[in-house]
Design a protein around this nucleic acid. Sequence first.
RNA 1: CGGGGCGUGGCGCAGCCCGGUAGCGCACCUGCUUUGGGAGCAGGGGGCCGCUGGUUCAAAUCCAGUCGCCCCGACCA
Length: 509
Amino acid sequence: MSLPVPVCTSGPFSWSDGRGRAIIVGSLTPHSGGSMAKGITKRSDDYSQWYIDVVLKGEMADYSPVKGCMVIRPNGYGVWENIQRNLDRMFKETGHVNAYFPMLIPESFLKKEAEHVEGFAPECAVVTHAGGKLLEEPLVIRPTSETIIWAMYKNWINSYRDLPILINQWANVCRWEMRTRLFLRTTEFLWQEGHTAHATHEEAEEETYKMVHVYKTFAEEYLAMPVIAGKKTDQEKFAGALHTYCIEAMMQDGRALQAGTSHHLGQNFAKAFDVKFQDAEKNLTYVHASSWGVSTRLIGALIMTHSDDNGLVIPPKLAPLPVVFVPIWRNDDEKATVLGRAREITADWDPLFFKIDDRDQYKPGYKFAEWEVKGIPIRIEIGPRDCQNNEVVVVRRDTSEKITMPMNGLITNLRKLLEDIQANLFNVAKHRLDTHTRDCVSYEEYVANVEEGGFYRIHWCGDRACEDRLKEETRSTIRCIPFDAPEESGVCMLCGKPSSRRVIAAQAY
RNA sequence: CGGGGCGUGGCGCAGCCCGGUAGCGCACCUGCUUUGGGAGCAGGGGGCCGCUGGUUCAAAUCCAGUCGCCCCGACCA
């Protein structure tokens, strides 16, 4: 798969990473000025090393002394704060409230739901000692909070008048994974988990469906990352759920990344924790549940969707710092003039919107490179010449385009430009997704191509056996059954049995 | 758990084969000159060479253990 990808100002290109995987690049070539990105592996040379380099050089995160854990640095945490702020608003606008449940969960709680314990037991960290003594009952560090939350809901729910409960929490969780990757899969990670309780199956279903669409909207509007929303296969669903909905994104190397999930838990947890309510007709019934979450993995998704060989590219809506001024001077007089004008221009601006990089110890070129690697959406160069002409040079991170703008009314033009950048990032990513999603009929064709990345729309009979075979033979999985997949009769790509709609299959992170 | 790589000033590495008491680049500090794409020169500070044991007059170097980290695969958001 090496379909051309149009970009804004430079030519389309696509290349291989030397292991046969196509690197699908929707961003820009390095601009004039030679090799900019010191110490960043090119995507074409080694995509996964590129990702690590970008995360570290962009100061998003750093490795911690404990294997599999990471420190989220201010640049990365700033993105997370923006994700939180915007998502949190969307949750509250849909009627949810925040609460906080404890991190330590009695081990016995985890065991109450059979499928749940089976799914999570292997990856739980367990506290056995505390206060210098062996604990009577070990405490599990939450891998997710369903059990502790439902143990509490039991106390809070008596009547249909107590329902629905629409609680979200922002928290850390711990899952002992075999292999970790910065942001994408770490031992401890930050996330939000919504846990709702409803009187009926239909209400819980409506909630589950609604929240996956909140995620889709958020991913597309804020992360500028197009996603495919759909339903997971039974094999891929959450441990303890009736079914799981998800959003799936495509990274620049064509691999799929699950970016958010929403589970319809049915009455499984209500039964496990004996949570019943009395309805209007005086019947005692088990409560229906949903849970849904996104994590700091979104930051990894963001990076792998937009960043380039020069470093991070952060969408304006989530950038901790949207605009940076790099003043240029040759002597103290010029320094005074240039800084004076910069401060004058920005006098009534929101201080969180911009920064004037007046550090003395670095030359402008150094600063350009630094802010570039950190993914700041807009850099403004302001020097003596600009001051004379009452203008500034504005450079956008996504295309490297330099635009001269008058000092007068600058903020208005910048806001417009930030919107353009946001839209452009989405459009480039959307085009990549569209052009690298293709119908596939024959298994031979699939096997021959799937290694190169991209999404494949295939017919699947729905049998577990075919799904297992696909995974076994191609190291790819059925990512989801898209909500918008049209009814279409066909035959299963693997076994030839009838199928009524296509599913998305791909190699995934 | 398998495969690969690596542990030497803050970071990246050389030195190890052929033992002789540690070096380079970046970063850092001081000063001067510089400043529109990662500045130059001069001077300076900083390392029980991952850990333990062994061989030896002498170990970063040889031997035996051991611990840790990263990358690639099997599980997962």
